[in-house]
Design a protein around this nucleic acid. Structure first.
Length: 330
DNA sequence: GGCCAGGTTCGCT
DNA sequence: AGCGAACATGGC
């Protein structure tokens, strides 16, 4: 194993800790991602090689810099740039938040959350395939159940490497999931419908009959049309792929129950908010609705005041990350 | 044990 | 167009 060091400069403002914590859903471990003691780790599949990225902050909010350590078995030079590109994508280093903040600053409902979470970028998956599969797996079940199912899938079929006495998993390649077959996918707890959907996508991808990465070059509406044309992929899933996989700024999964709850709280509504109402209201946030969605989820998970989940606010070794961010409100 | 969770499809009216 | 059922799992 070799180690190679790099330094990258994210677009400011960039809160490394907050963004890395968000990528693990404020739980320290989530699927392929780990964030402990200020170090974010993720095993990356590059071609037929594996590379562990260990990332930590070496800057501050408005002058951000991250230190990237790549652990690998003698990689070719050109592979490094691929790895760094993936790190940048996964941690959202290149996103510019300024236009979103300009919009949020003058929105009474949003301004406090945006200020509190200033520097939170939107973590993305390494591939569109990954976002799609993770979303399908998480359909219609609780966040806890989704986390568990995703982890089982990754650990059962993802390539792994043991480094410094610790085991890491990369996200499964399409051919591995295709090879798992219905039996394999059912056995980890997917419904028949989800297993069929994942299997068909993985198979078509592995056989080169489907190219999800090419969605990056298409406009939102077209990407949605193509995605929802896939069996098992509805509007909710397509919007999350837009946000998590394609890094688009204006995704909005208006049928998401947790998002609807968050919006109800944001607007101080007692009863449930209907998807159509949420969608109509959200138009004022366009074209930055992906950021709104993520910031609402983050606020919810961090247990911001009047935002539910107070008990879950303590994470990262019992210290509420909210308490750290709270100091920003003047 | 029942019901709701970060939905989608299919088969009915 | 709109409604209900089935689907697997986790937590309360």
């Amino acid at each position: 194993m070799e180690k190679t060091l790099f330094s990258l400069k994210p677009v400011p403002p960039y809160d490394f800790e907050l963004t890395a914590a968000y990528s693990t859903y404020f739980r320290g471990n989530y699927g392929t991602d780990q964030f402990h003691d200020g170090v974010f780790r993720r095993l990356l599949g590059v071609g037929d090689a594996l590379c562990l990225a260990s990332v930590s902050s070496s800057g501050v909010l408005d002058f951000p810099e991250v230190r990237v350590e790549l652990t690998h078995e003698t990689l070719k030079d050109e592979i490094f740039s691929v790895c760094l590109g993936l790190v940048s994508r996964v941690l959202g280093l290149d996103q510019c938040l300024d236009p979103f903040y300009s919009m949020a600053d003058v929105d009474p409902a949003l301004s406090e959350i945006a200020r509190t979470l200033r520097g939170l970028h939107l973590p993305q998956t390494a591939t569109v395939f990954e976002a799609l599969v993770l979303s399908i797996v998480g359909q219609g079940i609780s966040a806890q159940a989704a986390k568990r199912l995703r982890e089982v899938l990754i650990q059962a079929y993802g390539p792994s490497a043991e480094i410094a006495g610790r085991k890491y998993y990369a996200f499964p390649y399409p051919d591995r999931l295709a090879g798992a077959g219905m039996n394999g996918l059912r056995s980890i707890g997917l419904t028949k419908a989800k297993a069929e959907s994942v299997l068909s996508i993985a198979t078509e991808l592995a056989e080169g009959r489907l190219d999800l990465e090419s969605l990056r070059g298409r406009p939102d509406e077209e990407a949605i049309r193509i995605l929802t044309g896939i069996k098992g992929v509805g509007p909710w899933t397509a919007q999350w792929v837009l946000i998590r996989g394609l890094g688009r700024p204006d995704g909005f999964p208006c049928t998401d129950i947790a998002l609807l709850r968050a919006i109800a709280m944001l607007l101080g509504k007692e009863g449930p908010v209907k998807p159509s109402e949420a969608l109509e209201y959200s138009l004022r946030w366009s074209p930055y609705r992906s950021f709104v969605t993520a910031y609402l989820f983050a606020a919810y998970r961090m247990g911001m005041p009047n935002f539910g989940k107070q008990d879950k606010g303590k994470n990262l070794k019992g210290v509420s990350i909210f308490q750290r961010c709270e100091r920003r409100i003047s």
